[in-house]
């Protein structure tokens, strides 16, 4: 490919604009989109760890952002993206051993990944409050 970029005017694969949308296509695109979103999420997680080591003054800023409504929405979307990407990743691993390619079954697992990731995200969001005493999670959780 030349330095000046792509000059061929003909449409390129995957040619998204002419396809009728179907769920396997949506999930495939979402897998890549959530992967990119989690890239940004990793920057935030590293920032969180760095805020802790930088001291309470820096952490207060992070805490304020995380506790705000937009911060909470972003945090929930981060959890949802994480679970979606993980569940669809398992779907990909099953394909890698050569199973699950039947179109109807692939559509079924695609819907399953969407539904299960939403359910698990709500469950994790809720469980994190339910078990504040996970080993070492909160001061005094250890005897």
């Amino acid at each position: 490919m030349s330095q000046t970029g792509w000059t061929d005017k003909r449409p390129m694969s995957p040619f998204v604009s002419v396809w009728r949308w179907h769920v396997t296509m949506l999930v495939s695109i979402l897998h890549r989109a959530t992967g990119c979103a989690l890239y940004a999420g990793a920057i935030v997680v590293a920032g969180w760890l760095f805020a802790i080591v930088s001291g309470p003054d820096y952490y207060a800023g992070f805490e304020m952002l995380a506790a705000s409504i937009p911060g909470q929405i972003i945090l929930f979307l981060f959890v949802l993206s994480f679970l979606f990407h993980a569940l669809n990743g398992i779907r990909h691993l099953v394909w890698d051993v050569g199973k699950g390619f039947d179109p109807k079954f692939a559509s079924f697992t695609a819907w399953g990944v969407i539904g299960l990731s939403v359910v698990l995200a709500i469950l994790v969001w809720w469980a994190a409050d339910l078990f504040p005493g996970l080993p070492g999670l909160v001061d005094g959780a250890y005897p």
Binding site: V79, F82, V124, A127, D129, L134, G136, V138, D139
Partner: peptide, 19 residues
């Protein structure tokens, strides 16, 4: 995910203790 959410919901001391 569960640990991170729990730690983020606490204060500075909780996060520090967790890590």
């Amino acid at each position: 995910l569960i640990s991170l959410l729990g730690a983020v919901r606490g204060d500075y001391g909780d996060a520090q203790y967790f890590v």
